[in-house]
Structure formats: structure tokens, C-alpha cells
Design a protein around this nucleic acid. Sequence first.
RNA 1: GGGCCUCUAGCUCAGUUGGCAAGAGCGCGCGCCUGAUAAGCGCGAGGUCAGUGGUUCAAUUCCACUGAGGCCCA
Length: 905
Amino acid sequence: MSEKEGEKFLNLLKTDFSMKANLTENEPKLIKYWDEENIYKKILKKNKDGEVKILHDGPPYANGHIHIGHALNKILKDFVCKYHYMRGYHSPYVPGWDCHGLPIELMVRKEEKTQDLVEFRKKCREYAEKFIGVQRDEFKRLGILGDWDDPYKTMSFDYEADILKAFSEIYKKGYINKGRKPIHWCMSCETALAEAEVEYNDHTSPSIFVKFKVNGHKDLYIVIWTTTPWTLPANLAVSLHPNFVYSRVRVDKEEWIVAKELLKQSMTEMEINEYELLEDKLGSAFEGMTYRHPLLEKNCPVILGEHVTLEQGTGCVHTAPGHGQEDFEMGKKYGLEIFSPVDDKGKYTDEYAEMKGESVFHANPVIVEKLGAKGLLIKEKKITHSYPHCWRCHNPLVFRATPQWFIDTLEQNIKNSVLEATAKTGWIPGWGEVRFANMVENRTDWCISRQRSWGVPIPSLICKSCGEEFVDTAFTEQLVERIRKESSDIWFVRELDELAAGKLECPKCKSADIAKGKNILDVWFDSGVSWFAVLEGKMKESVPCEMYLEGTDQYRGWFQSSMWPSVIMRGAAPYKKVLTHGFSLDETGRPMSKSLGNVISPLEVVKKYGAEILRLWVASIDYTEDFRFSYNVLNQMTDAYKNIRNRLRFILMNLADFDPEKDVVPYAEMENLDKWAMKALHDFAASIDDAYDKYEYHRVYHGLIEFLTVTLSALYFDMIKSRLYMNPPRSRKRRSAQTAMHYILTVLLQRISPVLSFTAEETFRFLYKDKESVFLDKWFNIPAEWGEGNEKYKEAFDLRDIVLKELENRRAEKAIGLSLDAAVTIKYKKEEFKDVLELFDLKEFLIVSGVSTLCDPSMQEETRIEVTKSPGEKCTRCWNYRTDLKKGLCSDCAEQIKNWSKEDI
RNA sequence: GGGCCUCUAGCUCAGUUGGCAAGAGCGCGCGCCUGAUAAGCGCGAGGUCAGUGGUUCAAUUCCACUGAGGCCCA
């Protein structure tokens, strides 16, 4: 028989499953298929009675294209959800977008010159809508399944209404308060400015050293330095650093207090040439000391703050809680008034009657003069420094306390409840709990009011006659229902009497002359009540949900902005688990940023490599830490992907004539080697499922690669190839191997589908033309029996390693090439070792032409391996060396060919 | 400056409560095969476990400090 004819009797099957993936072309087709066939909806239907496990999406900001952080975040969420889908949980995934806020306002204002507020808000809405569309397409391109047709948007009418409903509930519980807080203020535009609207330019200010008379000591002064003399009327304290050393020095007939390290520098600046050091003391020793206010008839305290620096001045810091951020924090800490005797136009109010009506910037020389007259001014100079200016009118800004609304996060009961909820939450990784709790402990009040345009209005009312600002809960609740129908625009479109059903009245002076408040809500409040608007509202599910999953920046952001409202309103956290991921760095470990020019766009990756490669990369890394991203690492993923795909293809090829409905061999009748493979499959699946349960996808990736490369490709497939090719197609021996491969493929597809969704679906639909989707497939539970295996497996594989080593030695000597060229003799010392040798068909197990075994109790060593070139001639069909060839065929091959068309052998 | 975190082969990761000469896969080098073939198999070279000091009979593993880096604050 010629070799050509011989191939007729070999199971060398072909497959149309291509080696080349062509991801960039095929992925969009699959996405279209998922879309058109409503696969996501069908998954929900399949699992509708399953246990509820909802991952609640944190809304990205609807602005610009997605970057690698967005991609990673959404892909991780997709892993979580898809594994839930596979395991039968009810896990609807409703993506969302954060729509209000300053960045969109700023973008729109660049192009839009309209002065009309409602028109402007309309443009903002359009802008957000546009980028929701852009980002939705980009996310879908990554293969993420979810309710893309009906996502949540913080600007939808329902959502806006729910924001105010939540506001109202929190207000009724007493956790929303009025307060004051210093902010950047432009007195020529008469408007508040956000940090992003502030531009820093050089500005010349007075630079003055002033001495404050200490009470209870004769001629003792504390020396401060400031560049804003106009804030001195608002001075309420002097801050010292508790751990700095302060010196008491004699200057003329007086004694001054100055930080020791700044003593020389400040004395030079004050042009004091002669002074004498009297004493050094820690700043903490001065706590409780009081001094006489330099301008007003009152006494003020010396307080301690870590914010004090030794960069300039005297180390004794003039503190006006109404006019500086740190001063404000200190004021809060020490219970000082947030005092700011300055009005919208930048003029002193009657709280500083002495200069009422005077503009603060014109006040500087006057204040300096007053200090001089009192003998408190030590030195005045001019200083040119970087100073905040208005980005629109370019005038210098002031920092000034204004009325604001706060959520009271300092109230001890609620803080304790938040800490309790924190302890009950599962933080992944575990250190998240410490980080979150620290932030809860140390945070300040949550200021929820913004003096902006694009957002949900705070439904506060202002009494025109007495100036009282207040919230009327009945009115708020009417407003909620109006907003649900007409959007929050009605606040700006309608007059107050159109909005209020009944009569409004000032709770303080009973006046009925009321106006609408002018503040909108912080967007963190918008997204912070998404559990209320989306989980409870839109989805009709309950809180807490299974998981929030975001970057580590959200410990301060969304995790907190969600936690506080939820604890106040529901007495518990909105989530059972919080999982966080790190940030993307470039190849050298620097953060990815536009300014560094080291950004790799996920869109570019998808275009060049395919989303599957990106998904595989996400699975490969330990995302809990920051991760490096580069084309280098993507190329590695491409290689890994090819490996996976080829192994799938090999299985498909060998299953081309296998129908699981008819051809499956019962476990009990399977070959031992195939049973071993089922044991390996069982163990593999158990470890993969454990990794999925713990959200450790890099273990999924590494476990998968290890299983495919070592267990399957290098061991199992290599060993069974001959059996698959040589035995009659329907023979039990061959069907046994195919049965194993069939189960391997089934388990593999289910395990890779959350990560390699495209490839899993492609393979699944290639295999089962009549089935819809791998995600709708029933979960295959691996029989526990398969995991039992045999304790002697390990000994057999240890023996195999030794034999292979010996084969390699012969190969190096050029005695053999293919391992089938060899014959092996195994000598063993202990009789019991026979059991190990009888476990498998040794010729198949070792892939050699002949194996002989011999027990020799007199041997020193346990086993001895001898490898020789196999005697006989090479069989043209099975390539074994045999001594019984007839016409080039060995007797086994002759037998197999004889039985070729018989069934069930 | 503060809170939290990271640093193991070129890359991505393992290394349970301190204990055999620190492992895997990929990549790289060399070889085999040509019935998984723009595939498959084998072998090999790569690490002062960021650095220093300490605790201990023994430290990649515990402690302290230093360095590099990240997120969030100030």
C-alpha cells in the first residue's frame, strides 16, 4: 500500500475554523449579531429566576472619547457580569452616564455665546447626549453586553426628579444645613468661580509684617505676615505649627514671637538689625494664648495647625476663616465663625462698620495706615506674586465666604453609621476598608451647592424681605413631579408662582415675597444617589446591590458620595462589595497623560489588534495595582491569543466527525488516560471558578494558558494523537478520546466566554449551528467523580519525565529523532511499581515504538531507564518501528484498516 | 507634608502561617518533527527577590529606615 492510499485510513480531519482570527473584521459582525438577536435580553430572560447579583455601573462623565482607564473599567465589569450570566445569576447591567457639571459647561461656553440660561442648558444637554452616543459605541465595540438601548443618564427627567427626591428625604432627616464657605469670587462679575475658571497671573500686593499684642504679658507680641491687609478685619486667630520651634526675642523694649527657623530671614526682611534671643518653645506650648485684635475691640486665640509652613513669613499665620481655604478648615476645627464682612461687590458690609461700602482692594492702604497709627505695623513692602484672576474679566479675585448648602458629614451619629456600614462592606482589595474609613473620619462637611448653570437646581427659596434662604419640603415634592415631566429646566423657565401650588411664606418673617434660590447641586450628589434613582427607581431592584467597581480615585469620589446619602436614607451602604482597580501607566511606569504624550487609546488598540486582545490583556494583569501598558505587552497578548486559538482549532478539527448526542463514551468505559484528562479538567475548572468567584482574572488567564500549554498541548494531545488518527473512526478507543475532547471544549468555552467573548461565541456557533449563543448555553456541572482520579498518576508522570529526559539524551547523540524512533526498557525495583506501569498504555503514554518492563529487586535504584533505537522497520502508517511489517504495514495497522468501516469496536 | 498602596527573571504573574539549591507561561537561544504546519514537541540561558539595617538557628516572606513610583488629599 502506498502512503497516499494509507491516508485514506487515517482520521486526518479538516476544519473550516480558521487559524487566523481576523479579529478586527469579525468582532463587529458578532457585535451586530448580539445586537440583532437581543442576546443580552435573552440572557436576562434565561436567568430571570436566578439569585440577584447586580453590579451597579458608575457613570463616566459624558465628555470626550474613552481612554484606557474607561476600557479597563468596563471590561472588568463585563467579566463580572458575564460570569454571572454563565452561572445563572440575575444580573442586569445598566450602564450610565454622568451628564451635568462644569466640564461640559466650560466646553459649551467656548462655542456658545448665548446669554440665555435655558438656551445654554439646552446646548449642554445636547453636548452630553452627543458624547453618550460616542462613548456608547466605543464601549459596545469592546464587546461589552448590557442595556445599551436604555442606559441611565443623570440628566434624564426621571433621574433629575429622583435627585431632588433624595435631596428632600435627606433634608427632612435634618442632614442638609445652610452654612458658609470661602470660594473664589470675582467682584466685578459678581460671580463665584470654580478652580478651573481661575487663571493665575502676576499681581503686585502689599507685603506687611504686623505685630499682635499678646494678652496678659507686658510688651509681648506675636508677629504675622500677610499680603492681604484687607482680610485683617476678618482675622479671628493666629495659627502656629504644633511641632515647630518658636523663639521669643527681644527687640528694643519689646518681645516678639517668631518661628526659630524663620527668625533670621524675617528679621532681615523687617529690617531689624538688633535683637536678642530669649527663649525657644514648641508651637504647641502657645495653644490657649490670646491676643488683642489689631483693628477691632476683641480678643482672639492662638491655635495650632499642621498647615503652617516655614517657606516665608514668620511661621505665625494670620487666620481668617471667611477668606481662605485652610483658614476655613481651621475655623471649623476650632469652632470659629466663618466671618467675612464683604459683600458681592467686594465692599465691606456693616459687619465692619468702620469701612462700610469701601472696596476691599482700595482698602489695603487704609488698613495699613490704621495699623501704622496703632503702632502695630512693623514693615510694609510691595511683592509681585502669582495671584488668582478671573478668566473672563481678568480682574483679581478675592476669597470670600458665601452662603452654601452642606450635608452634615460631621454629625457623630451619622458618621458612626457610615463607619459601621464601611465595616460591613466587602472591600476588594482588603486595604480599601482602612483607606475609606480614614477618609470618612477625616473628611469635612460636604458642600453640595454650586453657583453654576448646568445641573439640578437646589430648590431653596429666598425671602426678599428678610433675606432668609430656606427649603419648603412640600414645595420641593411638588417640584419633583413637575421635573419628572418637564426636566429641571422648569426651575429656570417658570416663575415661582407657576411652580408653587400653594402659598409660600418665609418661615422667619412670614413674608410672602419669595424668590427662587440660585444654586445647583454638586454633580457628586447626582451620581451619589444613583442607587436610589437607578437601582431602586429605574430597575425596581433593591439596595444594597452586589458590587460597585471603579478606580481607586473613587474612594474619595463616588464610593463616598453614594455611601453618605444611602446611610442617611436607608441606614446601610448601597453596595455589598466594592472592588477597585489601579491606574494605567506607560511602559516606564509614568502615568498616561496627554501632556506626557504617552497615551495609548483603546480605540487604536481595537483597530490594530481587536478588542479581544485588549480583553485578554485586562485579564492578564493584577488590576488591583497600577498597571503598565504598552504595545510590547499587547504583542505578547497577541501571541497568547494565537496559542489559545490554535488549541481550540485542534480540538475542533478532531471533533469534526463527533456528535456528542450519539458518540459520547460513558465515563466508566473511557480509557484511563482520558480519565486522567477528565481529572485534569475537573481540577482546572475548579481553580478557574475559584478565581472567577474571587474576581482574580489574572489567575483565570494564567490558569488557562497553563492548562492549554502544558496539560493539553504538551501532554494530553500529544499522547492521544496517534489513537485519534489510527483507530477506526467509530471505535471505542477513538470515541473515548473524542469524548474527553468534547468535554474539554465545553468546559473551556464556558470558562473563556467572560474574557474571550468573541472567540468563545465564534467557536460555539461554529460548533452548534442551531444554537444561539454561548451565553445562553446551560452551565455544565463537572461530575465530582471525575475529580477522584488515581493517586498513582503522579508517579506515572514522574516516570515519564525521566524517560523523556533520556530520550532527549539519545536525540542529542543523534541516535533518534522522533521519539517513535525509540524503544524503552523500564527496570524497577519494587513489585508494587507494576501498578503504576499498568495505569496507561505505555507506548501511547511515552509516544515510543516499544516499551518493555522488568522487575529487578536486586537493583540499587528504584527505576532504571534504557532507551535504544527501536529494532525493526518503520510502519508506513503508524510510524512505529515494528518487526512484523507486511507490505510496509504493521499487524496493528492491518487490523485497524480491516475494521475501518465497522462500528463500535 | 498626610492617608492608602506597589517594587520577584526582558514581559505578565506564582511563591499559604519565615525553612529543601526562588517557580510558571510568554519572549529569547539551540535542537527535533513535518499527519495541529504562517502549527506542534523538547532542551537551555536569564533573578545580589528595589536598597540598607534589624529580629531569628534560618527572611523574598516579619520590623525599621532609604530609594523609585501611583491614587487621593494638603
